[in-house]
Design a protein around this nucleic acid. Structure first.
Lengths: 205, 205
DNA sequence: CTTTCGTTTGGACGAATGTCAAGATTTTCT
DNA sequence: AGAAAATCTTGACATTCGTCCAAACGAAAG
């Protein structure tokens, strides 16, 4: 039993899980600001209306909290992208829509994506995060692959690379655009738009 | 004057810079093990024959030390890749050689590359690192671009994307392969080999 | 040998961290 | 309302961190 309150009588609505989600969301906001390394439990608590001691009532230790945050971030990601491929009638339309979508996602929440790359880097050192991070990577890969397959079908062709390679290339474009965007480069968003759009025809027969 | 000893009489050989290099190299080894976040000055000192106090004799503070480390890492990178494009007579040869080279680099020093991605992620939060990290990224981009141009020339064609996009895609493949390699995936190295090799024809006319 | 200056040590400091527990407060149930 | 359980606060703890400093060391110059 990792948490002291895990054995409580179940109320009608699971208030316990709600509070965990609330605290995890505050932790995500704090980490998006400062990064994983510089975010302490007290800093996280300052983003809530509660005191720092409460965090250990809902989470056994810091690793469990961060792990829960990563899972929650994943839930938001898959929910966002499960809407599926945009309804496009031509390959060019789909490629443009996808490039626009990626650029919009970057522009809309650059700090959240910055946190994602931070956590993914941390997962290379902290084995506890590795599983959840890999799952998020897989779901993103599936999202990319659905778009690549849809593009290929519209173009009357087939993919010429593995799902993993396709995701790696799109992710590389996105990460590089994020780096430049955060550094203040003006053309970063447009470069991502065009780079992603032009990547589709490179990946089909 | 950032360092107390910067005003010392210059000896014949600059022993001061040598010691800085020695300490920075030890810091790189320590960070490759633990990652930037978990590496303290005392941990770094344990990787040397000196005590922890010495670090503040050669470096004003931790940021100056890490910055010096990043610059030193960069020096090693450009030295490694300045050897230039491999002498290949056919496009396929060059692509295969480049894929093999990337896979070999990953297999040879995965922890050092892990540190690189860690530091690059940190540079998104710590502005002090941003400049040096961007310079390393630029030099890596140039290295990739030389190979892409050489491939295009051998194939009697021209590149169909920007240097930045080409680097982003190769870097994405490399980073994804590193993640899987560290997670214990067996096919990661081979996938990188093939993924990089097959990327070349996608980037030329 | 003595002095001098660059080098190195080891300990100390204040601040910050993760963790924990005892008590206060609020909610829920009878 | 009163009792019991769940929730929350507060303060403390042992570490660890970056930083600083007085003293000791060592080699070269006088």
């Amino acid at each position: 039993m990792t948490s002291a309150a895990a054995a409580k009588r179940r109320p009608r609505v699971d208030k316990f899980e709600d509070r965990r989600r609330e605290l995890a969301d505050a932790a995500l906001v704090a980490m998006a600001d400062l990064g994983y390394a510089r975010t302490s439990l007290r800093t996280i608590a300052e983003h809530t209306k509660f005191s720092h001691g409460l965090l250990h009532y809902y989470f056994a230790d810091k690793v469990e909290l961060i792990t829960y945050c990563v899972q929650r971030y994943k839930a938001a990601c898959v929910k966002r992208y499960e809407s599926g491929v945009s309804e496009a009638s031509t390959p060019a339309e789909l490629a443009t829509a996808c490039g626009d979508g990626l650029a919009a996602a970057l522009e809309e929440a650059p700090l959240m994506h910055r946190l994602w790359y931070d956590l993914r880097a941390q997962s290379m050192f902290e084995e506890a995060f590795r599983g959840d991070v890999a799952e998020i990577d897989d779901s993103l890969q599936e999202m990319i692959w659905r778009n690549v397959c849809a593009y290929a079908e519209l173009a009357g062709a087939g993919p010429t690379c593995s799902p993993s390679d396709a995701y790696a290339m799109f992710d590389g474009l996105f990460q590089q655009a994020l780096l430049r965007h955060l550094a203040g480069a003006q053309g970063a968003l447009d470069d991502l738009r065009c780079g992603a759009r032009d990547l589709f025809p490179r990946l089909v027969s």
